[in-house]
Design a protein around this nucleic acid. Sequence first.
DNA 1: TGCCCGGCTTGATAAATGTCAAGCTGCTTT
DNA 2: AAAGCAGCTTGACATTTATCAAGCCGGGCA
Lengths: 195, 195
Amino acid sequence: MNRFYEYIRHYTAHPVTSQEQDVLQHAFRPKKLRKRQYLLQEGDICRHLSLITKGAMRQYSVDEKGGEHTVQFGIENWWMSDRESFELGSPSKYNIDAWEDTELLQIGYDDWWRLRSEIPAMRILTAEMDKRHAVASQKRIHAAITLTAEERYLEMMKSQPAFIQRFPQNMIASYLGISPETLSRIRKQAFLRGD
Amino acid sequence: MNRFYEYIRHYTAHPVTSQEQDVLQHAFRPKKLRKRQYLLQEGDICRHLSLITKGAMRQYSVDEKGGEHTVQFGIENWWMSDRESFELGSPSKYNIDAWEDTELLQIGYDDWWRLRSEIPAMRILTAEMDKRHAVASQKRIHAAITLTAEERYLEMMKSQPAFIQRFPQNMIASYLGISPETLSRIRKQAFLRGD
DNA sequence: TGCCCGGCTTGATAAATGTCAAGCTGCTTT
DNA sequence: AAAGCAGCTTGACATTTATCAAGCCGGGCA
């Protein structure tokens, strides 16, 4: 938990009082997942926000032909959830599972909203998260409608090298919206040109 | 402004006191734009959030070849801004202009943050906006990486028919990430099959 | 009125990307 | 050690989508 208080202070510039630590400790629960274990399955309702403290996960959908489409990757200090299901209480269309052995801090919907009014730092943290999320979403949407497959990959190498290192190529491809074969060829081209 | 208080009450279930109306009235400024007039140009810093009270606008980038790529449409009751430029104070990569004659209510960065702490309804409104934005972004990203051009268009017809009615096809195409010709052919196909 | 221009369609062709099938490699499991 | 499997690559081919060029149509404007 101490790393979590540090995390909050880092993003909000608000130190967490020991009184607040008490409240936080009761609201957040640690959880461990083994590689390939589900955090959420299609049809479930997403009841928690989960902060990754260690490991790597992904959120993805599965189409009729069994193809997987990665909506989001997460590693240390990223929050995972199906935002739609969590906020609306609707059954999720996505799976979230662990690609590496993973450790999380989880908080439920009611606690999350309660803490936002009780602890100023949590209010700031939420605003900061939403802000970053909005900026990142706009970028990804713009990339999707504007760039070619190759440009999207090179852009991802620049902005998210950690994901490319920690997840296999077929998952990267499904994140970029292309087939694994196409990604393999794009990488070859880029390599032959000298990265 | 009265419609604005009504708007707030609708989304927050908090009536706006006359004291608060006073504060809001000083923070928000009305603005009118003629068709084709810019609200924001590439290179500008986006200093305001703008609520559309009447009209239709779009946010788009222009590539090296002069091609336009629509990131967002907005009509009545939609907020327009380049979120990245607004939050980070960086020069925008986008243009925002009016497609129809448009009326706005604008608020600056500092006022926006101040009102969030002063007026509870604004805090709720912000949270609600961020929530909806997050859900919509996730959907659009999922559509972009999962669906074919035709499926994306049909999906848009279902979820955003107002946009399709009020913006010309070449802009719809640039929103879907396809060429105007492809959209024209897709529509013909769909029509021949009976919608 | 008549012209011009923006928006839309259509056809021919090119480029990008997907699909299917095969084979390679390194790791895990037995 | 052998078998099996997941991830990656490659080739041949199919499909989707973009590009370029031409023409149509209707509304605003001289």
